[in-house]
Design a protein around this nucleic acid. Structure first.
Lengths: 182, 182
DNA sequence: TTTGTACTTGTACATCTGTACCACTCGGAG
DNA sequence: CTCCGAGTGGTACAGATGTACAAGTACAAA
């Protein structure tokens, strides 16, 4: 009658549950009991797999971050031989924002990094990840500008709850990434 | 021996204390007791002036938001007859980020708006406030692009804990605000 | 089969939380 | 002066929370 044993699967279920809870109620309101209920495991399981609530939340954020890194690799691949960079970046942004809860968790993590240095690595990974591969294509200044445009746009879409204005983003990126006037 | 009576002052002290606490520990970890201790008032005072913790936090966020609106008016004034718009906007951004805790509270509020619609008004006020007065100067598309640059830049500065790269911001804004090539 | 250990599950408990509420004091209206 | 209500400060309490733990269970090795 008990669930078949699967420690790694269980750990993953808990982490995923934690991500969902964080997306719904925020990092600060996340509790052992909410996560356990969401993951469908007894309360004791969450304390067995994670030494403390902080560990649990950190694991969830690390999980979200690792998904971002994986996504980043995909971005690099799909922009490497892209002709129209603004077009591709806009499409990627739209895809990213399609999973709104996940995006929300990552921006929550992003902002939480402002307060806790041990989370800062995740934020740095994102900024440097996007920045580096863009720099190689268009130079450091344009890359930094494009990164700001992307971050600002995503933040606005998430906070205002509106849809992404793809035409606007394409225009902004084109402006920023354009070759310098000769 | 008791403090001289000053209801309005007290209310303000509590709200300010709440802002500081939010800046330090985040919205989710803010408690009556932390705020009371920070404001230097007894626990009962916080429940006397605010019906619930949610009300208290909301008041603090409203306070932070109103400061932003006041700041916005200043931005409008100082950009109205500015020759070099990127230059002025960069300077204003640097000033804004100088008070890091306050900026942090506002971005916390900004992101919290993603989850609670009653906070969305504050986020909208910021976006529309900056957007409108920029639109009048440079057109809707350029204004939206500049707004994304500003938001993205500020978010990065806050999360990465780095200093504002003013030259970079000036460059990005110039790119985005430049008159269309004729 | 027996045994040991990693995993499971439910409960227990100290602590912290929001909030209600008491007795008290000041300051102004009558 | 008297009184009354707004403001003050301290305490109480029910509920939620993080975490420890004891008792049980399944599975792999001997």
């Amino acid at each position: 009658m008990t669930t078949t044993r699967d420690p790694e699967g269980r750990r993953l279920r808990i982490v995923r549950g934690a991500c969902e809870v964080i997306a719904e109620v925020g990092v600060g309101n996340t509790t052992h009991r909410l996560v356990a209920a969401r993951a469908g495991v007894p309360l004791g399981a969450t304390t067995y797999y994670f030494a403390s609530l902080d560990d649990l939340v950190a694991a969830a954020l690390a999980h979200a971050s690792s998904e971002t890194v994986a996504l980043l690799a995909q971005w690099v691949r799909r922009t490497r031989d892209a002709e129209d960079l603004p077009e591709v970046l806009t499409a990627l942004t739209a895809e990213y924002l399609a999973d709104r809860p996940r995006a929300l968790v990552e921006y929550e993590l992003y902002l939480a990094a402002a307060r806790s240095p041990q989370l800062r690595g995740f934020a740095v990974a994102w900024v440097e990840g996007v920045g580096d591969f863009l720099s190689a294509r268009v130079g450091a200044q344009a890359a930094a500008a494009a990164l700001a445009v992307l971050d600002g746009t995503m933040l606005q879409v998430l906070t205002l709850g509106t849809d992404l204005d793809e035409a606007q983003l394409r225009w902004s990126l084109a402006r920023v990434l354009a070759a310098p006037p000769s």
